[in-house]
């Protein structure tokens, strides 16, 4: 291949090529480099890159070039770890905006009398932009996949993940964790009376009331299934959990949604089962759910529209003490841990 053709080919490449001699001085600088740096071969010839671009002193680009010249080692510089190393610009307009090209750089040794080091530079600006956009989309999709389509609160997947994570944290730190299992009373009768659309509206209102009654950031209601909702409370002991449960029960009661098929109260209510523990090493997270479930069924059996908590000493569910129920009704505040 003649030299003229070789030069044309190198200048036509859509990648930046720089050749350095054994002292690290520029021998060759292709058309791509000229376009994106604004410097011609005449401007850079026989000069070292650290003279041309003092900002690369102390960077990985400088040490990689010296590794290549000294030890014949190759290196690659990823754009995510070495943002905008060289003052190269995707478009001429970017220079004014000081928006440098995202660069992927390969540096490798050559076995040649005069040429010691080849530097290849790829423009990753478009790929990085695409990457950012895809990530933003996937973050949004992940968010959606954790949301209950009807009520907008977390879905079962959200709850299962939160349960595993928060239970593990509670176990690691040996801190209390509590769970509330919340079930809309006589919901089948409500559906039968108002139809499924009416039932849906009821669930939406209940879910909103539950979520709004929570005061601490990070506490979130999830729809466990059908008309059941679940709530995990990190750093919360039984007494505090019981107080929160009672507040949630009242919040639903105070929605005053008529429920003609529930003659006792005449409006929509919830029953709540509470469990709380400091998990021991051998306990699995499901035990928290099983205990809350048991307490919930006891609350149903005891007449609905009430909270009951699981007592690990007796293995049975207990009703709230009058004191807690009273203090919630009068609106005195509680801390999450007492």
């Amino acid at each position: 291949m003649d030299i003229e053709l070789g030069t044309q080919l190198i200048d036509s490449l859509r990648v930046g090529l720089i050749l350095l001699d054994h002292a690290g001085r520029v021998i060759s600088w292709n058309g791509w480099m000229k376009r994106h740096s604004g410097l011609s071969l005449a401007d850079v010839s026989s000069r070292r890159l650290d003279e041309l671009f003092p900002e690369i002193v102390g960077t990985r680009l400088e040490s990689s070039i010296s590794d290549t010249l000294r030890f014949k080692l190759s290196s690659m510089l990823a754009p995510s770890l070495n943002p905008n190393v060289l003052p190269l610009y995707h478009n001429p307009g970017d220079r004014k905006l000081k928006q440098r090209m995202q660069q992927l750089i390969y540096i490798s040794p050559l076995r040649h009398e005069h040429c010691a080091c080849l530097i290849q530079i790829h423009d990753m600006t478009a790929a990085m932009r695409r990457e950012r956009r895809l990530r933003a989309q996937s973050t949004q999709l992940i968010e959606t996949s954790y949301q209950d389509a009807l009520t907008g609160v977390g879905n079962r997947r959200r709850f299962d993940q939160d349960l595993a994570q928060r239970f593990r944290q509670a176990k690691d730190k040996q801190r209390p964790i509590a769970m509330l299992m919340i079930d809309v009373d006589s919901f089948k009768a409500y559906n039968d009376h108002f139809g499924h659309q009416g039932g849906d509206q009821c669930l939406i209102q209940v879910a909103r009331a539950l979520q709004e009654a929570l005061r601490r950031d990070g506490d979130r209601v999830s729809r466990y299934g059908g008309e059941e909702f679940a709530l995990l409370l990190a750093e919360t002991d039984r007494e505090a959990a019981v107080a929160i449960a009672e507040r949630l029960r009242l919040a639903v009661e105070q929605l005053n949604i008529p429920h003609p098929a529930a003659p006792a109260l005449g409006r929509v209510s919830v029953s709540i089962g509470i469990s709380a523990m400091i998990p021991s090493e051998e306990q699995l997270c499901y035990i928290l759910v099983a205990q809350a479930d048991l307490a919930l069924y006891s609350a149903k059996d005891a007449g609905r529209n009430r909270c009951m908590w699981y007592d690990p000493e007796s293995g049975a569910a207990r009703p709230l003490s009058a004191r807690i129920a009273d203090s919630e009704r009068t609106g005195s505040s509680e801390s999450h841990e007492s």
Binding site: D67, F71, L73, S74, S75, M76, A78, Y106, P109
Partner: peptide, 26 residues
């Protein structure tokens, strides 16, 4: 790149102390 940094650092230490050249690929 992280692998590159660790491997090259190890090999350059060997090359340096042994006084040899180790031609490394990408």
């Amino acid at each position: 790149e992280i692998g590159n940094v660790i491997l090259n650092a190890c090999m350059s230490a060997l090359a340096d102390e042994f006084g040899v050249e180790l031609h490394g690929g990408l």
